[in-house]
Simulated assay, not measured.
Amino acid sequence: MKLLHWFSLLLCVCVNAESNAMWRESGENVTLRCSSAGCSSSIEGYEGMYLYQNHTEQIEVFYCNTMAGVTEASGFKDRIQTAGSLKNLIVTISNLTVNDSGFYSCVFIKFQSPAVQCSVYPLFVKGVAECSRSTEAPCALADEKSPPLVLIIVAACTIGMLVTIIFILLIVPRVRRRTSSRRSTAGVPQQVSNDNVYEDMTKNGLHPLREQLPASPHDCA
């Protein structure tokens, strides 16, 4: 039952990872929803929220609070539009580039309280690679296909499922057969040969009971 449980859990993770992934072309827009529905705990009374992009490193996209509104990071300047309240914020990122690929997470914060991470969105942008936001050095432009991260996730899930299926179909029945054969062997008592018992009694000067009985009156002298 544990094997089936882990197999089902792995399958669910793979399906969710592939279905939540968003694919865009360079120059397109993407809309994310940061709401309390995707949070693991209550965000009642939280005063602000960060949107982070995680790819090769964690990058702040913007910060939003109830007093100052939205403060965009330099790499996303004039590309962020928000609508709704802090607990149900709809975020649109426009003019996407390849560098915008990554995992976007909504993190709610409150003074002297632990941060709460909510919805996580995998975003993959196809197009031409640009220079890194963290440096002004020139870089070579090259056509970049779909980022391999989602392919790695799908491949890892597929390999895990195949290993689990092979383990269930091949190894588990063998273990059960060996266990049952050992139990059956342990339950059968060992049989002692009558010839061995007779030889042991003869060596010790003993004779079987039928040889030690007195002669019957009806026997011949």
Rank of each mutant, 00 (worst) to 15 (best):
G84Y: 01
L151D: 08
E136Q: 08
Q81Y: 01
A137M: 12
F103N: 14
F103A: 10
C106V: 12
K145H: 02
T135D: 09
K110R: 12
L149A: 12
L151T: 10
S132I: 01
S113V: 07
G127M: 02
L169Y: 01
Y121W: 13
K126M: 04
Q117I: 15
T164V: 07
M161F: 11
A83K: 15
N88A: 14
K87P: 11
A140S: 10
F103R: 10
P122L: 02
S134E: 08
V116P: 02
F124I: 10
P114H: 06
V120M: 11
T135L: 03
T135A: 14
I166V: 14
Y104K: 10
I153V: 15
S94G: 10
I165G: 08
N88I: 06
T92D: 07
I171H: 06
S94D: 09
L141I: 06
L89H: 14
G84D: 03
S132F: 00
V120I: 12
R79K: 15
D100M: 06
I165F: 07
L123F: 03
S132C: 00
A115V: 00
L141H: 09
D100N: 14
V107N: 07
E144L: 02
A83Y: 10
V163F: 13
T97Q: 13
V125M: 03
I80M: 03
P122E: 05
C131M: 08
L89W: 15
F108C: 12
S119D: 15
P138L: 01
V107I: 15
I90R: 14
I90A: 11
S146P: 00
V150F: 01
I168N: 09
L141M: 07
F103V: 15
V98P: 09
L86S: 11
V116I: 15
T158W: 14
S119M: 10
I93A: 10
L170C: 08
V107D: 07
V150T: 14
S119K: 07
S134I: 01
F167M: 09
V163R: 08
C157R: 13
S113T: 13
P122I: 02
G127A: 00
V116Q: 12
C118G: 06
I171K: 09
L170H: 05
I171T: 09
I80S: 03
A155Q: 12
T158S: 14
L89P: 11
E144P: 00
V150A: 05
A156R: 11
S101P: 06
K126E: 06
I153N: 12
P114V: 00
I153C: 12
L151R: 07
V128C: 03
A142Q: 11
I166M: 13
G84C: 02
S105A: 14
D100H: 13
N99K: 11
V163K: 07
V116N: 08
A140N: 07
L141C: 03
S94W: 04
A155F: 09
K145L: 00
